[in-house]
Design a protein around this nucleic acid. Structure first.
Lengths: 154, 154
DNA sequence: CTTGCCCCTCTAGTTACTGTAGACTGCAGG
DNA sequence: CCTGCAGTCTACAGTAACTAGAGGGGCAAG
């Protein structure tokens, strides 16, 4: 395939133009050739590279992990174990988040259910959020799971 | 209850001092009284307010939603429907993320399984990342979910 | 008085982008 | 040839939701 501008690459990969430039700026993508007037010109393999990055990101790998994966990709074979480790780490992370979200789902459902039956003078959702002490019923286990939430608390 | 400094409030709610000031700066918390020397002095109800905020945030409500909830809390009762809507929206969001994460989990498991049996020549994880097409799309939301990950635990 | 923790403001950094400003390029129509 | 417009360039600012640090002042005890 002939060289393409950043717009074409964007179209081919569904990655936004600005994001492509961003990836270049943080070193995920090599600097491409430039036209005489300074426009970026990409070869066909850029599409694969970019898809790789995008797919890894969609899988939840942080950029730092993507960087690792790329570097391992360059010298393949022997390092498969490392790649496996990175993937496993990511899987653990995904599972951790799954557990948290399931707890959140349960708590939200409970809140909403309470609100539905709400002849209660004050909304149960707000009550549940206020919680601590004088709540309608004994309190859930959700909060404990939430205690370890990654949302930058703790 | 006597007035307390920001440190006490932080201790009582497990919300960091800097975060409390941050919440004040974005209008989630009212500006408290100040001592003669300029230190913030909080009344007892600040504890409840702050716990409410923190709990809502832990449940994944964005700050904008928390703001809404607070405003509804001020004039309670009649607005229960609105509160319910916000909670439902949040529940939908949580479910969406759950679905996405489940797909991620499946794909990661598949990748790792392939890698285990894998010969050295071609790591299947990298191969799996290279091929696109069959998987998740919706890149923006993916990134959103992933943003705010611990990255310390890893 | 000094130690040491607490508090103050302000700024900048984090992650992974997205959006904007202001200027230039490349190409088609009239 | 001119005009118009989409596409591209750089550079900076903004987003979410905080966190961390600099550089200073306050306050009670030893």
């Amino acid at each position: 395939m002939a060289l393409m501008t950043i717009g074409k690459l964007s179209g081919a990969t569904a990655v936004k133009v600005t994001t492509i430039r961003y990836y270049e700026s943080i070193g995920l993508l090599d600097e491409p050739q430039r036209s005489a007037s300074g426009q970026r010109l990409y070869a066909g393999d850029s599409v694969e590279r970019l898809r790789f990055i995008r797919h890894a990101r969609d899988l939840g790998f942080p950029v730092s992990a993507v960087r690792e994966l790329i570097s391992l990709q360059v010298e393949p074979g022997r390092e498969c174990v490392l790649v496996d480790q990175i993937a496993r780490r990511q899987l653990d992370e995904v599972r951790r988040r799954l557990t948290q979200l399931e707890a959140l789902e349960a708590e939200l459902k409970r809140m909403i259910r309470a609100c539905e039956g709400g002849k209660i003078g004050s909304c149960s959702v707000l009550a549940a959020l206020g919680q601590h002490e004088n709540c309608l019923h004994e309190q859930h286990d959700g909060a404990e799971v939430l205690a370890g939430l990654p949302s930058k608390g703790a």
